[in-house]
Amino acid sequence: MPEFRVGRQDEFADGDKRLMIVGGVEVGLFRLDGDIFCWRNICPHQGGPVCQGQVFRRVLDVIDESGQQRGRTYHDSDKNIVCPWHGAEFDIRTGRHAGTGRLRLRAVATEIRDGEVYLHVDSDQ
C-alpha cells in the first residue's frame, strides 16, 4: 500500500481538523489529545463529505429517576464529527456512528515515525 508523508506531528495542533487529498483519496485528519486519527471523507450513510462537518462534544441526555428526559449535557472528552448532509454523528477516535454500530467511517492507516506523519492509502478501496 502506498505511503504518503503529510507533515510533522508537531504541525498538527490539538483540536486540528485538516482535509487533504492523498494518493487521489480525500482524507480528514484530526488531532485529539495528542493522537492523530484519519478517515476517508465519505459518510457511510449517503456518501456525504463527513470530514467537512463540525466537531462537537458528544451529547448526553439527562434522564431523571422516572425515565424522563430533563435536558442535555456534553461529554468532557468524546468528540464527534457531524456529517453536513444529514447530521450523522461519528466518534472521531473510533469512527463508529453515535447511535448504531452498523455505520462506521473508513479508516486511513496512520503511522508516526521520527515525528513525521505518514498515511497508507490504497486508492482502489
Rank of each mutant, 00 (worst) to 15 (best):
F56W: 13
R40D: 00
Y74I: 07
A109D: 14
V22R: 05
F12Y: 12
E111H: 13
V117M: 04
V27A: 00
P44Y: 05
C38H: 05
R58P: 06
W85Y: 15
G71W: 02
E111P: 02
H97L: 05
D35H: 09
Q125S: 13
G47Y: 05
C83S: 09
H97I: 00
V25Y: 03
G28F: 09
R8N: 14
G47S: 10
D16I: 00
S123Y: 08
E111Q: 13
K17N: 11
Y74D: 12
V50D: 05
G67W: 11
R57Q: 14
R40T: 04
G99W: 09
I92Q: 03
V62E: 15
D33P: 02
H97K: 00
V82P: 00
D35L: 11
H45T: 06
F12N: 00
G47W: 02
D64W: 07
T73S: 15
T94F: 07
K17L: 13
T94N: 03
R57I: 01
C83D: 02
E3W: 08
G95R: 03
G7S: 00
L29G: 01
G48K: 08
S77E: 15
R72C: 11
V62N: 11
R31N: 10
C38F: 05
N41V: 07
F56S: 08
P44K: 13
G115W: 10
L60A: 07
R106A: 14
I112N: 10
D91S: 14
R57A: 15
D124V: 09
R106H: 12
L105P: 04
